[in-house]
Amino acid sequence: MKVMARNPAAHQRQLSSVFAPLNDATRAEQVMERILSGISMGVLTDGDRLPSEAEMAASMGASTMTCRDALSQLRGMGLVATRRGREGGTFLTLPVGGRRQLLREKLATLSRVQLRDLGIHYAAILAAASELAAEGADDEEIDILQRLLDEESTSTQLPGAKVANFLLEVAALSQSAALTREYVRLHSGFGALMSLAHEDAAFDDEGLRRCAELLAALRGADAEAARATVMSYVRAAVAWLVDYHASGSSSSHSLSTKGLP
């Protein structure tokens, strides 16, 4: 006998999510999308040697056949090349500006409302993590953040890399694995788009200033200030991206046939 009173709307929404269409991307597509997201995050760059098919398969829990398929599709897109011999392997062959091109294509597939919504989701996760970090971080952890911020940026670093590294460390200081994982996931999506804004030196400076502000809030165990700082930063990034999006700076030619994950 059912005795539980149910909120009909919420119940209906949850029920439909149970039977929602499954993600029908093949395993090979998932491997490929991971590598594309690695490129757009800037963790995989031109000339990088990818792990061997066997290493990739062991690490991702896929078959070597699946990884081979994924690599062959990327080869077809001109994003990797395989060389034989002792110094051989599969290497990333990303044209100059290729990463930016992939990001612009991704941005062009989004509507303005989708873009704003991604920003809201990203801000909510980061703000919650920052509040918890303000409550929980100890002095040593805050000193690590300080050193990270004080380090000289190297010219090989991608735009926004310092801010991104800083924010990832902050997310982990929430002491919530679920929040950190969600932040990492969003970071490879909306976070990668934010790196377009960080190519603008004025925006990047503003981002670094916000990080210093956030650090001060964490040091003072001021959760409210931490939240406010993070919200301002993300709001500024969304505003920048909406402008960029509206100015129609979408791709002139296509690198990939499909959008990024």
Binding site: A171, L173, Q175, A177
Partner: peptide
């Protein structure tokens, strides 16, 4: 630790 290890375990 305890710390959220985002390099290795991806967990607390």
């Amino acid at each position: 630790g305890p710390y959220v290890d985002f390099l290795c375990t991806d967990d607390f």
